[in-house]
């Protein structure tokens, strides 16, 4: 792992965050909104892991690793809940986005 590599990924977090955030609002379909929220989460995880890779002599910092594993489980739980809501709304009304006429 070179010193530059984690900087590349740390920097990648910025556009990913922006894409995810705008996507949650701009995408119309529930499924895409959920995907956008997942991308938003991935950007925060990416930055945390990139920070952990800054080596000060003890190898990677395990605290952000643990934080991200916790975060991944939380994010998937929330996504599964959101999917259930979206699917139920679709089954009951035929709406696949907010503000649609059934």
């Amino acid at each position: 792992m070179t010193a530059e590599a984690h900087e590349i990924y740390a920097l990648l977090a910025a556009p990913l965050f922006a894409v995810g955030l705008v996507g949650v609002f701009a995408c119309r379909h529930f499924l895409k909104k959920i995907i956008a929220a997942k991308i938003l989460g991935a950007s925060a995880f990416l930055l945390l892991i990139a920070l952990a890779a800054r080596d000060h002599g003890e190898g990677p910092d395990p605290v952000p690793h643990a934080m991200v594993i916790t975060g991944i489980v939380v994010a998937v739980s929330a996504a599964a809940f959101a999917l259930t809501l979206a699917r139920r709304i679709w089954q009951e009304t035929g709406q696949s986005g907010f503000g649609e006429k059934p």
Partner: peptide, 19 residues
């Protein structure tokens, strides 16, 4: 690549696999 194999495993299995 960032030496976080624990996270890679979790992400590939839960984040991408299950979801």
């Amino acid at each position: 690549r960032m030496r976080a194999p624990d996270v890679a495993l979790a992400e590939a299995a839960i984040g991408t696999g299950l979801l």
